[in-house]
Design a protein around this nucleic acid. Sequence first.
DNA 1: ATCGGTGCAAAGGGTTTGCAGGGTA
DNA 2: TACCCTGCAAACCCTTTGCACCGAT
Lengths: 128, 128
Amino acid sequence: MQRNTKQREVIAACFSDEAGPLSVYQVHALAREQYPSLGIATVYRTVNALVEAGMLVPVVIGGTTRYGLAQKCHHPHFYCNKCDHAFCLESNPAVTTRLAPKGFVVSEYNLVVSGTCPSCTSENRRRH
Amino acid sequence: MQRNTKQREVIAACFSDEAGPLSVYQVHALAREQYPSLGIATVYRTVNALVEAGMLVPVVIGGTTRYGLAQKCHHPHFYCNKCDHAFCLESNPAVTTRLAPKGFVVSEYNLVVSGTCPSCTSENRRRH
DNA sequence: ATCGGTGCAAAGGGTTTGCAGGGTA
DNA sequence: TACCCTGCAAACCCTTTGCACCGAT
């Protein structure tokens, strides 16, 4: 039987508070603010358990795996090269339909668009 | 100045011969058939150099980075979970346009659809 | 008191780097 | 001959695992 611990509470809270998917490293940094002795292995174990449990889904962004809430993250994401933040995008029906030609059985898809986010773009403009 | 070596020739040929993008591991295995003493470090260095040179582009598929010819691989890919092979898909105009909302500057995108490819699907059918 | 969860450190897998020797130009 | 490239091994991440202790039930 599963037990409730402070560590799990803090880790799970990171995802509820955040808009976009987080890497294990980011979760560790965030959660440590509230629980400094938290070990990285615990984050890995907890995140993997939450994926198994169906609460989180993995989203691969630029070679790094991030994790987002399942009910929020079955859709495209935007990755900002400047601030290293990942955003959730609206699901685009045109993407999900007719993705593969005849004969290919589609079970899922992963779409990551990258570039510069609005706030990094405006920061850039201010400098000119 | 860059020099032509047998190793580079063999590695580059792997990509010309292949339909889909390859992982470093796959390139190493393929290239070793023609050059058995080839070291994995040389494959990493050569592939990275070819990406720098613009000949190859990285395609992240299921957490693993594969590499494909630049002129062939700026488009969606299909990953077969059964045979572990990556296929190139036709570029879908609906995907490349209107990907991100206003304010986001898109520089590139990575779309991987996964499931079962035609030959693995038919193999499955034969067993029933 | 039990036994699942945690932190630490070691082990594992994939990728990069330092170095001496070899091969291209 | 010069010096870029290669293979080997060590170094480096990132992630998982083993183990003894801690703490929720």
